[in-house]
């Protein structure tokens, strides 16, 4: 650090820096205040119109409108699948799907959340299953009912090729099924829309687990390490290092070598 800067840091009121950061983040951490908003849109939450700031997601817009979520939201970042939402825009026939936490509001959006999908999840012990297409059909015989209408793909808020992975399952192509379905957040919209009543995301879950377990064996380096641990190879080193005082540890830490990139 240059010395002028050093003194700048010293003089700097550190608390003030923190306050400035907090002030800048206010909108994000405690909700939007109407006074700061310039652009507005009208959305229809289950049919009723609300004026909301145009910058918000469906989720934050609903909160702005006064909804306190106790369902239909989880991670708020597009991972958990809790906030599945269907919407149609004024004047359009297409029924669209999106995650409320990931979709910006648009003027004239009519929306409803689908926070729950009734679905069967059979029990199985992955260790006892055959790595074979019949396993999929055994637990999910309705797979055979796929008419390839592709409605599932249209409904997927992650833009996955859902029908393609279902078809890969029917063909017993576990690699394709697993890779194409990998980004699935199990929101349930595909299953809700499927005319053949398939629960795509559960099928994919079973397919991925079969693939993960059986496609290639456990890496040798891991198996070896487990054996070494069983044989007590690290006992002594751990006994020693756990008994070291702070100073010795600090020294060791400072001197440790980094693996070459």
């Amino acid at each position: 650090m240059a010395s002028s800067e050093e003194s700048a840091t010293k003089k700097l009121d550190l608390q003030k820096v923190m306050d400035r950061i907090a002030e800048a983040s206010k909108q994000v951490v405690s909700g939007v205040e109407a006074g700061t908003v310039e652009n507005w849109v009208t959305i229809y939450i289950m049919g009723r119109a609300y004026q909301v700031p145009a910058d918000l997601t469906i989720l934050t817009a609903m909160e702005y409108a006064g909804y306190k979520f106790v369902r239909g939201v989880g991670c708020r970042q597009g991972f958990c699948g809790a906030c599945a939402t269907l919407y149609r825009k004024e004047g359009e026939y297409k029924l669209q799907a999106g995650m409320a936490c990931q979709t910006r509001v648009e003027d004239g959006m009519y929306l409803v959340q689908i926070p729950f999908t009734p679905a069967e999840k059979p029990s199985y012990d992955i260790a006892e299953l055959d790595y074979d297409v019949n396993t999929l059909f055994e637990y999910y015989p309705e797979l055979a009912r796929c008419v390839s209408c592709n409605t599932c793909t249209k409904a997927c808020p992650q833009d996955l090729e859902v029908m393609d992975y279902v078809q890969a399952g029917i063909k017993g192509d576990f690699g394709d099924l697993a890779e194409e379905s990998f980004d699935c957040i199990q929101c349930g919209l595909c299953a809700i829309r499927c005319p053949s009543e398939i629960v795509q995301y559960n099928v994919a879950q079973l397919g991925r687990r079969l693939y993960g377990r059986y496609d290639s064996p456990e890496p040798e380096h891991l198996t070896n390490r487990l054996e070494e641990i069983d044989e007590g190879k690290f006992e002594q080193a751990l006994d020693e290092i756990t008994s070291l005082g702070r100073e010795e540890l600090e020294k060791m830490y400072a001197e440790r070598e980094r693996e070459q990139e």
Binding site: A144, C146, V147, S148, C149, N150, M163, D164, Q167, I170, P195
Partner: peptide
């Protein structure tokens, strides 16, 4: 590619079955 639909549907108004 996807499943062919397996059986040619004979119902008249069953267009959806030919989508596959």
């Amino acid at each position: 590619w996807n499943c062919c639909g397996t059986v040619y549907s004979l119902a008249d108004d069953d267009l959806i079955h030919h989508v596959a």
